[in-house]
Design a protein around this nucleic acid. Structure first.
Lengths: 345, 345
DNA sequence: AATGTATGTTTAATCGATTAAACAAAAAAC
DNA sequence: GTTTTTTGTTTAATCGATTAAACATACATT
């Protein structure tokens, strides 16, 4: 009843040869290992007949390679990461790799867990979207000589391969775009995080103000905690609006912040962009559906994911090749939510 | 430099015992195998010192269990499936399982590929969101005695475990809700697919009309192909609006159809719900952000995912337990996009 | 005939863990 | 003082594949 699995041995028995020959033939080594032609044909035929499928566990145990990549992201249910995951999945598959995905929820702890579990499962390498305070993990991987590539975020003080976004430039562009459109009081809602990419977004934003001689007001910048974004965003926006220098434009540093913020802005009855212009990082179909299409920072997602896989695979082949550190440029997609202000007369 | 991996053997050597003892101790079998207490302590200590991490490949090869679940969904970058994936990931982890995810893009071919690859990697079982024409795959798994649970979709004529939605009821409710709100000409945009859940949605919709004595018009039902949704939805909506019985309300059979359709509706300058009321399957943040919150069919995502994992794990423990076939009920979340029509006077 | 070379196939170790069975020494029973 | 039982430990097979090395022929060369 239960057709059990067909192994090399089964084929060998049926063909009346040793497993060695079967292995050679099925791995296309009949030439190098000078297997008899007739036997080779016979083995192939039997393998097909029995629908032989090699056991990758055994293969991996022997070879020390699992052809598996561990992908650690913040949260697969976040469209940004889901998109990345899909791209990584496809690229990996093209190269004969399978991907195991884990969500860290932006915590170093879960990220550690995932790394441990994935290492026990002998993944060949990692693609990691780092959480705050996870430097220790990175050092551990380096020390253990585990190949990995950081994606979307990196630690400038740790020499690693990475592929991420030029966040400073992207944020600077976002700010400048609004300023050019006539907006003067520009707020930023970011995560409260020491992660470099976030700090860079803040720095880029501030620099855009500075560069255009707009004095920065502390109440324009709100950094919210990962676990309290809903409440904190409300407070932040309230403060920004109540300020003596009430904001007329708002930048969101990530997709999730934007979604949450926009819901609140809607509930306040504010009109975009008349009452409040909007620019956001990340892109998503939600932005297209909004009554006023949202201006966003277009990240080269496909390139990000694809490049990360490429670098990792390159590294798996040549472990000691030079470190690749790639900062990709974002493109501001200007749409209605940040259209130039009607001149005040 | 390269700290290489610590194996049982390394511990055994350091402790001057055989690997058997080490294995017994580290698997908590010191009692049954009557390992000397002092030795046991020593072994544990050395294991900790060397930070021993077992090689799951070896364990799995020996035991025939990988503690891995293969999850096949249509597309991880679709928020609906991404959410499901996250829930499955978390539930599986709670039970000591790891999940490998693959996207089939609704094609039987890719689904076959994934099943093959995952089987070669010796997954213990599958959770599958089936594609059209994939019955053969299901039969194959049954024949091979591979444990699996179908999720979100099932084949009524094949006896399998499954967890899905009562699509007929959900669609019926959606239609009835609109009719009660005074809408008379109600369209449905669905996928052109023989998959049971899709046919049930169509049937439920038609039955709601019938039940309220509204004669069905062929132009009210548009079934679009998976790969041509954009163009076909346009044609479909155009036809529905141009009809002698122009629709005043529209149901979308999935989240992606809704997103695509709403974009087109926006571009036509139609107002929801004044010009066209909307009800959609699936839920997503995009719906909250729409200028007029979209009425949707709330699927018990968490329950769906959790139950699928539970059934699968149960099945892994007791392969011959009875088949679980679960149809969950959806809940219509009425919002502005389908508010009752202002009475015509 | 002796030696060398080419061709074809098998043997056995290996990857890292598990575990039944064998073995050895100490303790208990008669 | 044997025999039996208990306790503690090792041996070796196993999971399914890979592959260097050994082996066994046939054929060619001198």
């Amino acid at each position: 009843m239960n057709k059990k699995k067909v192994s090399l041995k089964d084929i060998a028995e049926k063909a009346q040869v040793s497993t060695a020959l079967v292995s050679y033939v099925l791995n296309g080594k009949e030439k190098e290992s000078r297997v008899g032609h007739e036997i080779a044909v016979k083995i192939k035929q039997i393998a097909k007949e029995l629908n032989y499928q090699p056991n990758y566990l055994a293969k991996s145990l022997r070879s020390g390679k699992t052809q598996t990549i561990g992908l650690i992201i913040a949260d697969i249910s976040n469209p940004f990461f889901a998109n990345i995951a899909r791209i990584v999945e496809d690229e990996a598959k093209k190269n004969g790799y399978t991907v195991i995905i884990g969500s860290s929820d932006e915590t170093a702890e879960k990220s550690w867990d995932l790394i441990t579990v994935f290492l026990n499962r002998q993944v060949d390498g990692f693609i990691i979207v780092s959480s705050e305070n996870s430097e220790e993990q990175i050092h551990y991987l380096i020390e253990r000589n585990v190949p990995f590539v950081l994606l979307d975020r990196h630690f400038p003080e740790i020499p690693t391969d990475f592929v991420s976004l030029n966040s400073f430039k992207a944020a600077y562009d976002a700010g400048s775009h609004l300023i050019r459109g006539g907006y003067k009081n520009i707020g930023l809602i970011a995560y409260q995080s020491q992660l470099f990419h976030m700090q860079e977004r803040i720095r880029g934003y501030r620099f855009s103000l500075e560069d255009h001689r707009i004095p920065f007001r502390p109440e324009w910048l709100k950094e919210v905690g990962f676990n309290t974004i809903e409440e904190e965003i409300k407070v932040g926006i309230d403060d920004m609006l109540a300020s003596e220098y009430a904001v007329d434009a708002l930048i969101f540093a990530t997709y999730r912040l934007a979604i949450t913020g926009l819901k609140y802005i809607n509930s306040l009855g504010l009109k975009v962009p008349e009452d409040l212009a909007i620019v956001s990082f990340g892109q998503a179909e939600a932005f297209d559906l909004y009554y006023c299409p949202i201006t966003y920072v277009l990240q080269p997602m496909h390139e990000l994911g694809k490049t990360a896989v490429e670098i990792l695979i390159q590294k798996l082949k040549k472990p000691d090749s030079e470190k690749k550190q790639i900062l990709m440029e974002a493109k501001l997609m200007a749409r209605d939510s940040s259209r130039p202000k009607a001149p005040v007369r």
